[in-house]
Amino acid sequence: MTPEEFLEMILTKFPNADGKISENKLPHPRKRVWINVAREEFKDLMKFIKELDPKAQFSIIIARDGGDYLEAKYHLELFYEQAPSISLVVGTRCPKDDPTLPTITDILPSSLPYEREVQEFLGIFFEGIPDPRRLFLPDDFPEDIYPLRKDEKGISDEMIKNAGHPYKMKKEG
């Protein structure tokens, strides 16, 4: 299956999503499919993708603080037996005063550690996650601070420990 046929199939079923194909400049150019979808249709889209290829491989969740919204992108690899395989990125958003997203651990069970990590670093809550414990941060880290956020819930200036760079050290007398 080529990336164009794949994108056709998705856009006929979910006409509200927008998708594009990007191509890079290698000696054998590589195409990637990028799809953006709203929060409500997200879980149905993942179920449809899993039906198209039951052996889909899940790679990473990339989450980002975009000002007044929080965005999460999921990278999947489909049809890994053929070369080239289809490399797919699915993105969705949620507003900052309602930071929840549906979980996909029932569709793709290998996404559990990535969801736990996004939960503790950015504060997006996944509804229905089976195991909401912390993964990387120590247990005595304060509850309401999310290290990768850029607003007041991020790391404040007192928490940064500086070992003393000779050009950047603040002179304290």
């Binding site: 790391i155 928490m159 940064i160 420990k161 500086n162 070992a163 003393g164 760079h165 950047k168």
Partner: peptide, 15 residues
């Protein structure tokens, strides 16, 4: 010795 590339971070305590 001095933190190397991680000298300014909320999680490391070099030197």
């Amino acid at each position: 010795t001095g933190g190397s590339v991680f000298f300014e971070s909320p999680f490391t305590n070099a030197p």
